[in-house]
Amino acid sequence: SAGPDSAADPDEIAAALLEGVRAYGLALLPWSDTAQALRTRAAYAGLDALSDTALIADLDDWLPPLLAGKRRLDAVSGEGLTQALQNRIGWDGQKTLDRLAPARLETPAGSSHAIDYAAEGGPTVEVRVQALFGLASHPMLGDGTPLVLSLTSPAGRPIQTTRDLPGFWKGSWADVAKEMRGRYPRHPWPDDPAAASATLRTKNADARRRGSG
């Protein structure tokens, strides 16, 4: 004969799943990296709507639609969870979030890099140093906090971590550039990076682009 749960009412199952989350916490849900990153940014920006306390308090508002027809919590859609978070902060909240805690750093070279708000030393971005040529001021978050720049070589190896890019350009850059010229001779290593053009290409590739332009 069929087991008892084969006849269980879908609404009863959904209600039981909801109570499970209420009792044992949000960690039971299959949060995607995107959703986790959104929550970390919101915490940094001081948007309380995505905190554990607020989400648990309003559980009945946002979770039931995601549980409809599901028999297990790990069947809940990760995209649905992300959407539910975005709906909670709304258009204005999203604008505030993008201002105070942007998701990515856009570089003068046109590359885009995710900002890690969970990093130990504060919001950190890993970026190739050449993508920042031409930048004379340090990238800041909307609240005036300097981004921690984890600068790497063309091969992605760590060079230096800095909260003061102009200071780095004027200071230890000369030594770094000297070493880099020896190690990556095909790439440009200008004496005055703040006034140079950002590029992720080799010198030859840049010259070819200029020639064809």
Rank of each mutant, 00 (worst) to 15 (best):
R88N: 09
R72W: 00
A119W: 03
V125R: 02
E79H: 11
R128M: 12
D61T: 14
A103H: 02
R99P: 04
D116P: 03
D61H: 12
W62Y: 12
S112K: 10
A103M: 03
D92K: 14
G80M: 10
R88D: 05
G69Y: 09
G110A: 03
D116A: 10
E106T: 13
A68W: 00
V127Y: 04
A68C: 05
G122P: 00
Q83F: 08
P123M: 04
S77T: 04
G121S: 14
G90K: 11
Q83Y: 07
V127A: 07
G78S: 15
G93I: 13
V125N: 05
S77K: 07
A118S: 15
Q130T: 05
L66G: 01
D61E: 13
G93V: 12
L85C: 15
Q94R: 15
Q94C: 04
W62A: 06
A103G: 07
P64I: 02
T96C: 06
W62P: 04
L67E: 03
I89G: 05
T124V: 02
A114I: 11
G93M: 11
G69C: 08
G90H: 12
D98P: 02
R99F: 14
Y117E: 08
K70Q: 13
A114Y: 06
G122I: 00
T107M: 05
Q130P: 02
Q94L: 13
L73Y: 03
K95E: 12
P102D: 08
I89V: 14
K70E: 08
L66M: 08
G78E: 11
A118L: 12
L81Q: 10
W91V: 14
L100M: 14
Q94T: 15
V76R: 00
G80R: 01
R88H: 09
W91T: 14
A103Y: 00
T96H: 12
Q130A: 07
A101M: 06
A109R: 04
R104M: 09
D74R: 09
A75L: 02
A114C: 04
G90D: 09
R71W: 09
A118G: 14
G121E: 13
D98G: 01
W62H: 10
S112D: 09
E126S: 15
L105V: 08
S111T: 15
